[in-house]
Design a protein around this nucleic acid. Structure first.
Lengths: 186, 186
DNA sequence: AGCAAATCTTGATCTGGATCAAGGATCTAC
DNA sequence: GTAGATCCTTGATCCAGATCAAGATTTGCT
């Protein structure tokens, strides 16, 4: 069984048959090398991706420098959600930090299937709900005033990120400079 | 026709029949006075509310002081979404800034209806998607480094807020002190 | 393995916005 | 309508974290 099949069944609670039906539509494999962009600002996101292997960063370009707002790693979904959902140009970039393998499903296919299978809609709705809740939790994390505490919260909630992602991107994600992250890590 | 009915049809695109069916379940009227809490930290959110009249603030208590993260005003929905969706205690408070009238629907009713009517599920999903997109846009707003620009963005996007909400809450929402807001408004 | 590029660390300095303070303007409740 | 509370403004000071700099370490590519 593929990792995507396992993800669909374990994380999204699809039955074996539903998983099989869905899998046939996830058929756009894509490979990226370090530095390649999965999505660029201005492009309309035409696919939803499942990461088989590798790590990616999601960032905005704001006043000349990049501001990281999220990460992607193996066995999770990734895409420019606002662009994918609204069918409008993406506001942010998604870039591979190393060799990366993905599977994609076209948004037209995806929404067509959504209409056909009510249970799929329920699962997608739950996924969007979870994404929303994740954002809300992150908002609280960023409210925490001291850099030291922001780091601590991330360490508690997602220690694996520190294994996968270079500190300078984590610093950006936590809204501080790499120097401040370094000085507060020990 | 009530404002809720109009909201359901115009904003959420329900048919007249669906609206009528739904309306019978929105039957928990609630009145608040200035300073009253709609929801307190620790409570599990048992209702989704529609604001008929009045304004409210949503805030976290973080290190002794309140941090505003959102507002509610007439003709929109409000509740502690993470609590409502996950059926867990709310992390934040919702408080009325003045006399406020609401209609509520119980979460058990709401989710039961959702199961029965697929089109309702689609509409709710769209609402959650929109809420997620709103969060994402807000994230960009907060990334803007200078206080002056953050104010400007909010003025452009939601000028009505400055009419409805005292500046000190807007300052908190924009992550700055009332002094800084005052100094950068003109 | 080996070299170039990228990243991390540590120190010295600077600064934007917070904090503290106090007077004036505006609400609001009876 | 008026008293009291709340909110807004302006000035003076302070400090956490940014910026600048430079050397040490790690990473990734062939």
């Amino acid at each position: 069984m593929t990792t995507l099949a396992r993800y669909l069944q374990e994380q999204l609670q699809f039955t074996a048959e539903e998983t099989t039906a869905l899998l046939t539509h996830w058929r756009k494999p894509r490979s990226l090398r370090r530095g390649d962009f999965l999505t660029r600002m201005g492009q309309v996101e035409q696919h939803l991706y499942f990461i088989l292997e590798g790590t990616l960063i999601i960032f905005y370009e704001i006043e000349e420098n990049e501001q990281v707002v999220g990460f992607g790693y193996a066995d999770t979904m990734i895409c420019s959600f606002p662009s994918f959902i609204r069918n409008l140009p993406s506001d942010y970039y998604i870039q591979a930090l190393g060799p990366t393998e993905l599977l994609g499903i076209a948004r037209t296919d995806f929404y067509r299937i959504l209409e056909q299978y009510p249970r799929l809609e329920t699962n997608w709705r739950r996924m969007v709900e979870e994404a929303l809740l994740g954002r809300i939790e992150r908002e609280i994390d960023l409210l925490t005033v001291s850099p030291r505490e922001r780091i601590q919260r991330l360490l508690n909630r997602s220690p694996h990120i520190f294994q996968l992602i270079p500190n300078k991107y984590i610093a950006s994600y936590l809204r501080m400079t790499p120097e401040t992250l370094s000085r507060n890590m020990k």
